[in-house]
Simulated assay, not measured.
Amino acid sequence: MDVTALPEECIATIISFTSPRDACRDALVSRMFGSAAGSDLVWNRFLPSDYQQIISESVSSVSSSSSSLNNLSKKDLYFHLCDNPILIGNGNRSFAIDKLSGKKCYMLGARELSIIWGDTPQYWDWTPSAEMPVSPQSRFSEVAQLLDVCWLDIQGRIETNILSPNTRYGAYFVYTLMEVGEEEEYYYTGLDHPVKVSIRFENENEGNATNAYLIPDTPEEYDGRHPHMRDDMWMEIEIGEFFTDQVHGMVEMCLMEIENGNWKSGLVVHGIELRPK
């Protein structure tokens, strides 16, 4: 059977059961396939089913308001949400879409995390993003800057029912280190020792903790997880992974260093990001 003989709407319906990557490839077959693959019928299926509700909860966006987002075609909206996370709720969370799969991505900003002694001015400073003394730009209004603590304990929580179902997610701690001085020398202390990262579902036994290193030039032969530079110039360390199935629950993510007892400073916390693996 010659598929090109089918009505364009039938071709679009068929493509909508594939994937965003396949749709982009199909668009190269012919002019009719290009029109079908770019239709709202196709890309509305690739968008999360509750995307309209999420957009309605947005408080701001990197480049667009919620009203202007609704004026985009479904394909343009899809790719806009891939590249431009929107702030939702009280502005301490962001939402985006994974470009290859269309799965949901969330980031919990520093204010959305539980940081031990985080509201004690002598230990932590909440710095407006526009006044950050470091180069990466935050999508949130403020970041947490570590001044001096001996007990580092940062935790985040998220309900799995807002994530994409039947998906393996990775949780990543996103941060940078202080830079000061004319030559932009690193200014941090006490962060050479490994931290412990762990992830678990609420009410489960304590998750298995893994060593992780915050300093980017830590030798690779050191056993544990090492940081990677992101495209947005922040660094990230994987905390762990989990799978979303039909049983909903709270996922708890933790980064901790409480055993060494040394004083630490110079860490800037952006947040914890959750995205499909």
Rank of each mutant, 00 (worst) to 15 (best):
E185V: 01
F173S: 03
H226M: 11
S164C: 12
G170V: 05
Y222H: 13
R225T: 07
S164G: 14
T167D: 09
L163R: 11
E220P: 00
Y188N: 15
E182P: 00
Y172C: 04
S138N: 12
G156S: 08
M132I: 08
Y175A: 01
V174S: 03
I158L: 15
N211Y: 07
L214A: 03
R200H: 12
A171D: 09
E220A: 12
A144E: 13
A130Q: 15
D231Y: 02
I158A: 07
Y222L: 13
T176M: 01
Q145G: 08
P194I: 08
Q137I: 11
Y175L: 01
D192N: 12
E183K: 06
E182Q: 06
N161P: 02
L214N: 02
R168M: 11
T210E: 14
H226G: 09
D153E: 15
S138Q: 12
N205H: 10
L152W: 14
S129H: 03
E221I: 11
R200G: 02
T167L: 07
R168W: 06
R168E: 15
E221F: 11
N161Q: 12
T160L: 06
E185D: 09
E179R: 13
R225A: 06
K196D: 14
N208R: 10
S138W: 08
N161L: 04
E202D: 14
Y188R: 07
T210M: 10
H226A: 07
N203K: 13
A209G: 07
I158M: 13
E182S: 11
R168I: 14
V197H: 04
N208Y: 05
L177K: 00
Y175V: 00
C150L: 06
Q137Y: 05
Y222V: 01
D231Q: 08
H193C: 10
D153S: 13
D223F: 03
S198P: 03
E206V: 11
N203S: 13
M132V: 03
I162D: 09
Y186V: 02
E184F: 00
Q137M: 09
I162M: 13
E202P: 01
S198A: 14
Y169H: 09
L214K: 02
A144G: 14
V143A: 12
Y175T: 00
E159W: 07
P133T: 10
L191H: 06
T176L: 00
M178Y: 02
F173R: 06
T189K: 12
Y169L: 07
I154K: 11
H228N: 12
N166D: 14
E142N: 09
P165F: 10
H193K: 13
N211I: 00
E220F: 04
E131K: 14
E202K: 14
I162G: 07
P136G: 14
D223I: 10
G224T: 03
L152A: 07
Q137A: 14
V195S: 04
E221A: 09
A171Y: 03
F201I: 03
A130F: 08
E204T: 09
N208G: 08
I199P: 04
V180A: 05
I215W: 00
A130C: 10
